[in-house]
């Protein structure tokens, strides 16, 4: 299973970035092998539809679990349609959040009730 955290930097134990679509990096942890990979978010500077683009990118990378702060309605519905498990967490060091995930202490995200928070226009 591939688990992804949206992170602010490429550093070890980086902080979680709470914006899903516009996070700078994705930290991908393979829970079987323990292998860690950092991927740049291709949607970071996208003028339109960052949420859907980032979600599609993770699906192409066979991610099964995503942990971020907020998910817009579009990103949420893409991830949900792909059967990805979606968790929400507060900004904090990724290692602590990974431990929380393993202990079953992370909260599942719910469908976004409000408007998206992309730049739209």
């Amino acid at each position: 299973m591939k688990l992804t955290f949206t992170v602010k930097t490429q550093a070890e134990n980086a902080k979680l970035e709470r914006r899903f679509g516009r996070c700078p990096y994705f930290l991908i942890i393979d829970t079987e092998s323990g292998k860690r990979t950092i991927l740049e978010n291709p949607a970071l500077d996208s003028p339109h539809g960052a949420g859907t683009q980032a979600a599609q990118f993770l699906i192409e990378n066979n991610v099964g679990v995503v942990v971020s702060g907020d998910f817009g309605p579009n990103a949420y519905s893409v991830l949900d349609a792909a059967g990805v498990q979606i968790y929400t967490a507060d900004e904090g060091p990724v290692e602590k959040l990974f431990a929380d995930y393993q202990d079953g202490n992370l909260q599942r995200a719910t469908p976004h009730a409000g408007r998206g928070h992309g730049r739209r226009r």
Binding site: S46, G49, T52, Q56, I59, A81
Partner: peptide, 25 residues
């Protein structure tokens, strides 16, 4: 379709195609 959409208004997951009208230009 998802590949050519520069507004990311279409997402393809396996055989499922999701269209986001409010992103479509």
């Amino acid at each position: 379709c998802a590949e050519v959409c520069q507004y990311h208004a279409i997402v393809v997951i396996g055989a499922k195609v999701l269209v986001f009208p409010e992103l479509c230009h």
